[in-house]
Design a binder for these strands. Structure first.
Lengths: 359, 359
DNA sequence: CTGAAAGCGCTAACAC
DNA sequence: GTGTTAGCGCTTTCAG
């Protein structure tokens, strides 16, 4: 590589020909009205389609619109009537494919229904989350969909106070009465552990998520319940609380493997930590599933491409996104309805990262 | 799993207690002015911070703002002065972690500079791309960052015509004079193939991207140039044009392996196709790198966790995103500057998916 | 059916 | 320093 001149940033800048500068202002409704020889009111009526305008004028106006390449100014429109067709979305980590898939689902229905998506990424930082929420307040968004960092419920209450509908996804906010779309985490975790036990495992580890997130807590609960209900003891040294990030999975798996008596199977509470854990296992030169069995949360695109293909708990992520968007839109049109909660069941997808053990 | 009552969608809905309905309208600048006993102009001045207002009034106004929990209406603000602090971003596939990482970079600087991000996902569909661009036109965004689907240059010209600055990322739009941030694709590809050749490979395959995307074309060019410059022939049966998606990589790799004389090494032109190719290789029970060597484009989070860890061409994705955002902001404040192109060099990260061959 | 006119909430001249 | 006022582009009564 290293071709051509370059600066310290390992990149080249080239200057090309100067750009043309027409700087023509966009046409306004007044321009269209003048062009068509009608009033702005008539143009407005034609645009909204609803009212009764004579065929002749409709034609003339439409022609003018086309001729002038007129695009109604949403900003002005928004100032007039309150439903501004803008939805704020705060995501705790867009870089995580789980969350970007959620956004895909949300965007699909929003776009279809003529809403626009204002995106904020909090990077799991409550401060940034708060800033985004203030922005949404200022933008007078029609609604907000969010995966909360765990705190900031006060800020969400402020939105509710001015009548902005909220829908929480994935993580159940504490102390907040909102519509919610999430996974039956406890049951999902229960299923995974039960699978391990059926395969003959008894010493089962858990790389858990943060305790301040419902997803972290509930998956932990399911793990405990499954173990207890099958007469197993809970060994605290096999349970590591981590951060839902790759490095967390890496380090936690390291600690698990360092144990005098390491687990024969491990459930990992999210996709990124699973990646980290895998990295550590490979580094130690351990074979999956012969030396250690694994189940990960989230069926990501890479799961079937791993060697061995990973057994996972799959979430219907896109559908969770579309559901959240739909719930929000419903509440916007009908604010009075009671709070709803839609909980999807996880699905165990058995591939090859678990092995049967003779006990 | 399968716990609790559920509907056909494999999910449960629960009705909870009804929500409170305060429906209090947000405070306006007039409310604040009244509360503080000043004019709206004074409030406006305090907010913008710039003008000279007496300490005493500043105090009173700030108190009123706090008391009323006032958030300036951005929509109204925007109507007044043109820089509306809104940036449109059209992404060709947010589900692809490469692109969502790009968004992370973009969002980081946008948020820092007080801009908001209007996100549109085109899913590689030119029609949807066009719809998003129309939206941006209507929203009078201050600028647009995009990864084009390959067509729709006419639509982009319309934006330019009304003076909306554009920055293209990753893919170089044909027939359009815009700022561009991309990778030195040809050189990157060249490097990868050269690496194969140095390791003793002679029969090298390519799973290429779509021909209508610059990334697809340029990576193909680099492949050819590397082969030719080292005295190798181009074997067309070793070159498969595909779709940058997982299934494309899967099928193409299948065809390559079906060849009477399959390649000993394959370069795969993007991250998702690499995943698909891996899946096919595992399905055939082939070992990497002993039976086939691989280099993939894009160093995704999962690359080091694969077995074996994947050798890749890494792009500085986040930095490409921040650069794009910065270029755009620069052009917004200074529209007259000449068109720029920032090209980053890819970096070969050698892990374990290539093996030396004795020739 | 169509037009005139009053704002939506805010900023920026322009006065005082 | 501070207040008054005229719009930004659009929708929506209210007349005609």
């Amino acid at each position: 590589m290293q071709i051509g001149k370059e600066d310290k940033n390992n990149c080249r800048k080239e200057r090309l020909v100067p750009m043309e500068k027409p700087h023509k202002k966009p046409a306004t409704i007044q321009d269209v009205a003048d062009f068509a020889g009608v009033s702005t009111a008539t143009v407005s009526r034609v645009i909204s389609g609803s009212d009764k305008v004579s065929k002749k004028l409709i034609k003339r106006v439409q022609n003018a619109i086309h001729e002038l390449d007129y695009h109604p100014d949403q900003t002005a429109r928004r100032l007039r009537h309150r439903d501004n067709k803008l939805i704020g979305v705060v995501i705790s980590d867009i870089q995580n494919p789980y969350f970007s898939t959620l956004v895909v689902g949300i965007e699909n229905v929003l776009h279809e229904k003529g809403y626009r998506l204002l995106l904020g990424n909090s990077s799991e930082d409550p401060e940034r989350e708060r800033e985004h929420l203030n922005t949404f307040l200022s933008e007078r968004v029609s609604g907000v969909i969010f995966t909360s960092t765990g705190d900031e419920s006060g800020q969400y209450k402020k939105l509710q106070a001015v009548g902005i509908p909220l829908v929480a996804v994935d993580r159940k906010p504490i102390n907040l009465d909102v519509d919610l779309v999430n996974l039956a985490n406890e049951e999902a975790s229960f299923t995974a552990i039960t699978h391990f036990i059926e395969e003959g495992h008894h010493r089962i580890g858990l790389i858990a998520g943060p305790e301040n997130l419902s997803t972290g807590r509930e998956r932990y609960e399911g793990y405990k319940r499954a173990l207890i209900s099958t007469g197993h003891e809970i060994h605290l040294e096999l349970i590591l609380e981590s951060n839902f990030r790759q490095n967390g999975g890496y380090e936690s798996m390291g600690k698990l493997l360092d144990l005098a008596n390491p687990p024969s199977a491990v459930l990992i509470s999210n996709n990124l930590m699973t990646l980290g854990a895998l990295e550590m296992i490979h580094k130690r030169g351990l074979m999956i599933p012969d030396q250690i069995s694994l189940i990960g949360f989230d069926d990501m695109a890479w799961a079937p491409s791993l060697r061995p293909p990973l057994t996972v708990i799959a979430q219907p992520v896109t559908e969770m996104g579309t559901t959240a968007a739909r719930l929000l839109l419903e509440r916007i049109t009908n604010p009075g309805i009671p709070t709803r909660r839609v909980t999807f069941d996880g699905k165990l997808i058995v591939r090859s990262s678990c092995v049967k053990i003779e006990s």
